[in-house]
Amino acid sequence: MRKGNLIILVVALAMGMVAALMARSWIAQHSAPASAATGTIVVAAASLPFGTVLTPDNVSEIPLSSGQLPDAAFATKTDLLKDGRRVVLTAMERSEMITKPKITAPGQRASLSVLLEEGQRAVTVRVDDIKGVAGFILPGDRVDVVLLRSETQRGETENSADVLIQYVKVLAIDQLVNDRQDQPAVATVAKAVTLQVSPEQAQKILLAGNIGKLSLVLRQPGEARSAEAGRITDNDLGPLFARNAKPPVAEKQPVAEKAAAPTLLQAFKSDTAKVTIYHGLDEKKYDVIHQAKEDAIRQAKE
């Protein structure tokens, strides 16, 4: 083998070894396990229902793999509890991340007012177990408010149903504000449902409560769009419920014509007799009626 070829072979082997080492280093660098956690985040150490006071015992810190802390989250227990007492507003499960919207501000009470969104109001509607959808409305659901009323004009009464407000949030049922409840509320004779509405909607509900009866219609979750809903009256329920409806009148059945009464002559026709009288060669026939029947015919004619 020539000396030049040997040198080229040695150089090629050296370059191949260098390339192999570089590839091995790159693969090892990109296939290495994720780096150790760079921080912590505060989560619930147990199930926390509405109104629970947060303490170092019912919260815990877990490693955070990414270096960026989620918005409104807390990195340590100290950050969570340093400014004062905090109370749970939204029920949380074990290991669920604790964020600012789910708890009160430091030193704030867990009242219904802190659940209201900015610019919203809370108004209570009293309904019975039927108008409250048999107790199946729960905090966090969305409902429509329907006004039922009766109006009397010119002696005629008209019943109507109008959709007053659509897609409003239920804040509480009686004294229950737990939005994680998965069982229907127990039906009672009267039930109070607290709704989150705008100031104008609150006025409408309060005024409508003096005009007629309010009923709630449960909406499908996530169905935010408003549906077209006009007034429904008695006339829309069918002809039997129409305001000016009259009871159906039975059709008159055709009455069979009475057979014409037979004349007295016809009545006594069968009682007549044929009499033949001969006058010479002339022959004449007569119908002879019994004297009593003849008298009756005469009286009838008179």
Score class of each variant (00 low, 15 high):
7 I>A: 15
8 I>K: 13
8 I>D: 02
10 V>K: 07
14 A>E: 00
14 A>F: 10
15 M>P: 05
16 G>T: 02
19 A>F: 01
20 A>G: 11
22 M>L: 11
22 M>P: 01
25 S>T: 07
26 W>G: 09
28 A>F: 02
32 A>K: 10
34 A>I: 06
35 S>R: 09
36 A>H: 09
39 G>K: 06
40 T>G: 01
41 I>D: 00
41 I>F: 01
44 A>V: 03
45 A>Y: 05
51 G>C: 09
52 T>D: 03
56 P>K: 12
59 V>L: 05
59 V>S: 05
64 L>Q: 10
66 S>L: 11
68 Q>T: 08
69 L>H: 14
71 D>F: 14
74 F>P: 03
75 A>T: 11
77 K>I: 09
78 T>M: 07
80 L>S: 06
83 D>T: 08
85 R>H: 03
87 V>G: 11
89 L>D: 12
90 T>N: 12
94 R>C: 04
97 M>Y: 07
98 I>W: 02
104 T>E: 04
107 G>Q: 11
113 S>N: 10
113 S>C: 02
114 V>E: 09
115 L>C: 02
116 L>P: 06
118 E>D: 15
119 G>D: 03
120 Q>Y: 11
120 Q>W: 01
121 R>T: 03
121 R>D: 02
122 A>L: 01
123 V>T: 10
125 V>K: 12
126 R>Y: 05
127 V>S: 04
129 D>Q: 14
129 D>S: 07
135 G>R: 11
136 F>G: 12
137 I>L: 09
141 D>F: 00
144 D>K: 06
146 V>I: 15
146 V>Q: 12
146 V>W: 01
147 L>D: 03
147 L>S: 03
148 L>A: 08
148 L>V: 05
150 S>F: 06
153 Q>C: 02
154 R>M: 10
155 G>M: 00
155 G>L: 01
163 V>A: 08
165 I>G: 01
169 K>C: 00
171 L>I: 01
172 A>N: 06
174 D>P: 01
175 Q>H: 04
176 L>A: 15
177 V>C: 11
177 V>L: 07
178 N>P: 06
178 N>L: 02
179 D>I: 09
180 R>K: 13
180 R>W: 00
184 P>L: 00
185 A>P: 00
186 V>E: 14
189 V>G: 13
189 V>E: 15
189 V>D: 15
191 K>W: 06
193 V>S: 05
193 V>Y: 05
193 V>K: 13
195 L>P: 00
207 L>W: 00
207 L>H: 07
207 L>S: 05
210 N>C: 03
212 G>Y: 09
213 K>Q: 14
214 L>C: 04
216 L>E: 04
216 L>R: 08
217 V>M: 02
221 P>S: 11
224 A>R: 06
225 R>G: 13
225 R>P: 00
226 S>K: 14
226 S>D: 11
232 I>R: 05
233 T>V: 08
234 D>I: 02
237 L>E: 09
237 L>W: 10
239 P>F: 01
239 P>K: 13
242 A>C: 05
243 R>G: 09
247 P>M: 15
249 V>A: 07
253 Q>G: 13
256 A>R: 06
258 K>S: 14
260 A>V: 05
263 T>N: 10
265 L>T: 12
268 F>Q: 07
269 K>R: 15
271 D>Q: 14
271 D>A: 08
274 K>L: 09
279 H>T: 04
279 H>V: 04
282 D>C: 06
285 K>E: 13
290 H>S: 11
292 A>V: 15
294 E>T: 07
294 E>D: 12
301 K>L: 05
